[in-house]
Every structure is written in C-alpha cells, then in structure tokens.
Amino acid sequence: MLTTPVRQLGESERRAVEQLLDLDPYAGAQVAERVAARGLGWWRSEGRVLGYGSRRNLESVCWLGGNLTPVLATEPAIAAYADLLAGQERLCSSIVGRADAVLGLWERLASTWGPARDVRPNQPLLATDTVPAVAPDPQVRHVRRGEVDRLFPAAVAMYTEEVGVSPLAEDDGRGYYRRVQDLVRAGRAYVRFVDGEVVFKAELAVVTRRTAQVQGVWVAPEWRGRGIAAAAMAAVVRDALHRFAPTVSLYVNDFNRAARRVYERCGFRPMGTLATVLF
C-alpha cells in the first residue's frame, strides 16, 4: 500500500502549482507552459501532474506525459515518485529535469523501466535577461507559414543528430510536422536561408511568462566553423526578449563546447545542471 504523499493534482490546486513552478522558472518551464495552457484537468491535457506534499504544503510536482519531468524534487519526493511509477508501465520517451532529481529517479526506476537508449547526466542550464553584445544577424528572421516544407528537412536533421533517432520513425513524422507547423504559426521559429537552403534554425519551444526557452538550434554542417552561430543566436535572443518573455533560457550538452562558447558570447549565464534519460 502506497503511504508516501504523492497524488494526482486537480484544477483546485492550480494556484499552488503555479506558485511552486515560479520557484524554478527555467527547469520547470515546460511544465509551466502546459499548466498555463491547459490547467490540471487530466481530460484536457496530454499528461498528468503529480504532487508531493500536503494540500497546505505542496513541495514538488512531476509532469507525467510524453516526458517525465520532476520539479523541485527533494530526496523524499524522488523516492515517493519512484515508488509510484515503478509499478506502472513506462509510457514516456524521456526523463528530463534537474540532474539530481532525474538521476535519482533513474537509479530507482532503471530495473523496471530500463534499459535507456542514452543517459546525458550533465547538461548546463543557461539563461539571460540582457540583449547580447554580439551584433545580430539581419538575415535571421521568423519562418513564414508557407515555408514549413522548406524548414522541415532541417528540423528532421537537427532532431536526428541531437536525439539519436529520426522523428520520422513514429507515424511517418506527422506529429513532428504538426509541432514544427505550430511553432511557425506562433512566430516562434527562426531561420536563415542562403540560396533557398536553411543554414541556421532555432525555435522557442517553450514560452512562459517568465522565460522563452530555445531549442532546436542547428547550423547546416557545411556552414559550421564559419562563425555564423553567435550572430544568429543574438538575433533570436534579441527578438525573444522583445516579443515573448523577460528572459531567454536553454540547456546544452556539456560536451558541445562550440555551442557553449556561442551561448557565452550571447550573454547566457549558468542556472544549474539538467540531465536527460532517453528511451
């Protein structure tokens, strides 16, 4: 019998959840965006929000959907989430969040949820609230609605390179195409074309009232090493700060030194460490 204080949260606790998410606006950004858009009613969402703690003292939340994302999870919360989840079939494609929580969960869940396809234990979480000193690339702009088909091959290449599997493997890529299309419609996809080909792309994959989180940053292989990334990212950051949120954030693999140098030049500062377990 489960005795740990973990429960599925409902709409009556939405204010408490939002206040908790405000305490970790960068690592909890994806959860905050979903709660803001769809609330906590399970029938209106693509996942569930679990809570640790009493109704008067909510201490941590954990998103359970396509991803598993613990937020502000202490050791007791990690143990409680793991106790609950170990008895359930794994449906998520990844576990992502603050490194201590993700690795703590994975240590407890690996025997029933494993094996993992990849574990990335050290992903620096970065943020900035300042317009970059780097001059922005004037050729970086929003992707227009009629350009989705031109952008999509680059998005697939980025995803495959970053995640290690193709987004076309599931449902022939229809779901991923819709995701790219939605970002374009929302004005959250950026591109630089040269002779009709994508040489740089990035998206604001998550937008909350606290931060705009950049993902999907990609430079075409033949353009790497030419020094275009910093100015391109500066254009993205400048626009995101102006149009979407008071900060811009992202996370990056620790071994991607070239990208980390670009982000440092654009004014990003460390905000902790994330980890990702990929299935």
Rank of each mutant, 00 (worst) to 15 (best):
C92K: 09
S93A: 14
S94Y: 02
S94F: 06
V96I: 15
G97P: 13
D100S: 11
D100M: 04
V102C: 00
G104D: 08
L105P: 05
L105W: 01
L105S: 04
L109K: 00
L109Q: 03
S111N: 15
T112S: 10
P115M: 05
R117W: 12
D118P: 05
P121K: 10
N122W: 09
L125I: 15
A127N: 07
A127D: 10
T128V: 11
T130L: 09
V134Y: 12
R141S: 07
E147V: 00
V148I: 07
V148L: 04
D149A: 15
D149W: 08
F152Q: 04
A155L: 06
M158C: 12
M158A: 13
M158T: 07
Y159D: 13
E161W: 15
E161K: 14
V165R: 15
S166Y: 11
P167A: 01
L168Q: 04
L168K: 02
A169S: 12
A169I: 11
G173Y: 00
R178N: 06
R178P: 06
R179K: 10
V180R: 05
V180K: 03
V180W: 10
Q181N: 10
D182E: 07
D182F: 02
L183K: 05
A186P: 01
V191M: 00
V191C: 00
R192K: 15
V194M: 04
E197N: 01
E197H: 00
F200H: 01
E203L: 06
E203N: 14
L204V: 03
L204E: 05
A205N: 14
V206G: 04
T208K: 07
T208V: 03
R210I: 06
Q215L: 13
V217E: 03
A220G: 04
P221M: 07
E222R: 00
W223T: 00
R224W: 01
G225T: 10
